[in-house]
Design a protein around this nucleic acid. Structure first.
Lengths: 149, 149
DNA sequence: ATCATATTTCGTGAGTTTCCGAAATGACGA
DNA sequence: TCGTCATTTCGGAAACTCACGAAATATGAT
């Protein structure tokens, strides 16, 4: 079960080397999140997000903690992971998509999980004015970054 | 042609996230090398090694320089690449496979490229006593690390 | 000029990744 | 107890990765 240093390093970089997983890591920088919150932001099937999170966990980059119906993920305290991610944050903060995500998240964090997860609150149908404003702004940012894909 | 920061970061980590490419980067830490030298160490087809090097170049991790019949690769001066690799070296130096590689390389660097590349000098048929000793030692190291795959 | 050879490019097959929706799991509340 | 709902696991389809050998390219030696 103990992998070589080489294999562990490869596993860690493979985990980071995917746009959705990198966005998830960036989101977690602002504090722990549950799966349903991340699902809203990245707009993929819940099962897909769950699988990405499993891979990040296997790579030692995040840890999970059950909290009632929800599962909360946070960045792992792993030192070599932290050093690695530190090298990533500086560049990444400028990215339009990452900025858009954190804009959405800052409003999303103010909504209770019960409220967020209740069936009617799919993205775009959320009533809260601040949140919808954040979503519009995020869409603009994303669109601006679209050219540079 | 300008990629977003997110895409470039992903590309870089994908490039690092492969055992052979990681070994190549580790090898280059000791100075520039030509393709034929790396091919001998990693024991893959020349075309395969060449493709790995192209990917590392596209990711901005290495640069190439033509030198007669040979093509020399070295680590790029790219600052964000350097910061990333710095986080990797510390862990990686202990890995048995990486140690084995650098042991072989330290002897391989003493052999001229002409001598190395002449057809009879496939790995294992090299006459130089120090080099063969290094290869035996490297094989032992690799075998010790085999358990931890 | 011609040959040998180091490297890259190309086509191909095997294996892996990524995404989805459906089914399974596990926890809360009625 | 039963249904509801967040999450995970599973099966499968499309896309991508990795390794190879053959062909193309380019350089140095004869």
């Amino acid at each position: 079960m103990t992998m070589s240093v080489l294999s562990r390093t490869v596993q860690m970089h493979k985990a980071i080397g995917h746009p959705v997983r990198l966005r998830i890591l960036s989101m977690l920088r602002g504090g722990p999140l549950c799966v349903c919150q991340m699902t809203v932001v990245v707009k993929l099937a819940g099962s897909t997000v769950s699988e990405h999170l499993s891979e990040l966990r296997r790579a030692g980059l995040v840890v999970e903690r059950k909290d009632g119906r929800w599962v909360e993920y946070r960045l792992a305290a792993n030192p070599s992971a932290w050093q690695l991610l530190a090298a990533v944050w500086s560049d990444l903060a400028e990215d339009p998509e990452v900025k858009a995500d954190s804009l959405v998240l800052s409003e999303l964090r103010k909504v209770s999980l019960d409220e967020l997860c209740s069936a009617e609150l799919e993205l775009g149908r959320i009533k809260r004015p601040k949140l919808t404003a954040a979503l519009r702004e995020a869409a603009k940012l994303r669109h601006a970054g679209e050219a540079a894909r």
